[in-house]
Deep mutational scan, measured.
Amino acid sequence: MATKAVCVLKGDGPVQGIINFEQKESNGPVKVWGSIKGLTEGLHGFHVHEFGDNTAGCTSAGPHFNPLSRKHGGPKDEERHVGDLGNVTADKDGVADVSIEDSVISLSGDHCIIGRTLVVHEKADDLGKGGNEESTKTGNAGSRLACGVIGIAQ
């Protein structure tokens, strides 16, 4: 089992970053940390998408990683996509320092995120509470600013 993974985020604009993942036990939580720069100040949706395909930019990554066919939600919700990591918060300089621990994603097994795409979005994720159909699919997080395929790390 891989215990570490990394993702280099890039987009068409100024947004870029490096996100690290570490899972010490196969059924334990995954620590997610790193930094994203070039964002507007505020909240930005942060999700693992189904495919590791960036051939047409971030759009070819498909929908959120959702092997259990659930509705979109927040990272602490029972009803959520596996890939729903909530929001990252950018400061006035456009930098989001990421520090998350998640017990639904994994670096092995059915919820493995390796080979899938991590995406940072234009807007805040409403965590499935926006009151419309799009909220239950995407959290109304808007366009995909930057993305990268999650790969095994040393």
Rank of each mutant, 00 (worst) to 15 (best):
A2H: 06
K4S: 07
K4L: 08
K4A: 08
V8A: 10
V8Y: 13
G11C: 15
G11A: 09
G13R: 07
G13E: 06
P14S: 05
V15A: 08
V15M: 09
G17I: 02
I18V: 12
N20P: 00
N20Y: 15
F21M: 11
E22I: 09
E22V: 12
E22W: 13
E22R: 11
Q23K: 15
Q23G: 12
Q23I: 07
K24E: 15
E25T: 07
S26M: 08
G28L: 01
G28D: 09
G28E: 09
G28M: 03
V30L: 15
V30P: 05
K31P: 03
G34I: 05
G34E: 04
S35Q: 09
S35R: 12
S35E: 11
S35I: 12
K37L: 11
G38M: 12
L39A: 11
T40H: 12
E41C: 05
G42A: 06
L43S: 12
L43H: 14
H44L: 04
G45T: 01
F46S: 08
F46K: 03
F46Q: 15
F46Y: 06
F46P: 02
E50G: 05
E50F: 14
E50I: 04
F51P: 00
D53A: 03
D53H: 15
D53M: 00
N54E: 13
N54T: 13
N54R: 09
T55V: 05
A56I: 08
T59I: 11
T59S: 10
T59A: 09
P63N: 09
P63S: 07
P63I: 07
F65A: 04
F65E: 00
F65K: 02
N66F: 04
P67N: 05
P67K: 05
R70V: 04
R70F: 11
R70G: 12
R70L: 15
H72L: 02
H72G: 01
G73R: 06
G73S: 06
P75A: 08
K76N: 07
E78P: 14
E79S: 10
R80G: 00
R80H: 12
H81D: 03
D84E: 02
D84I: 02
L85V: 12
L85T: 05
G86L: 01
G86I: 01
G86A: 08
V88S: 11
T89R: 10
K92W: 09
V95D: 06
A96W: 08
A96P: 04
A96E: 08
A96C: 05
D97E: 11
V98L: 10
S99P: 06
E101F: 15
E101W: 10
E101Y: 15
D102S: 07
D102I: 11
D102A: 09
S103K: 06
S103T: 06
S103I: 14
V104S: 09
V104C: 10
I105Y: 05
S106G: 09
S106F: 07
L107A: 03
L107E: 00
L107P: 01
S108N: 09
G109Q: 07
D110Q: 10
D110I: 06
D110S: 11
H111K: 15
H111L: 12
H111W: 12
H111N: 14
C112K: 14
C112L: 13
I113S: 06
R116D: 00
T117Q: 04
L118Y: 01
V119W: 00
V119G: 00
V120G: 03
V120N: 02
H121E: 01
H121I: 00
E122P: 02
E122C: 10
E122H: 07
E122Q: 11
A124T: 14
A124M: 06
A124W: 08
D125E: 02
L127H: 05
L127D: 07
L127F: 04
K129F: 10
G131V: 08
G131N: 15
E133K: 12
E133Y: 11
E133L: 12
E133W: 13
T136W: 07
K137F: 06
T138F: 05
G139A: 01
A141V: 03
A141H: 02
G142Q: 13
G142C: 11
S143P: 06
R144M: 02
R144I: 01
A146I: 09
A146R: 03
A146N: 11
A146D: 04
C147V: 00
C147P: 00
I150E: 00
I150P: 03
G151A: 04
A153S: 14
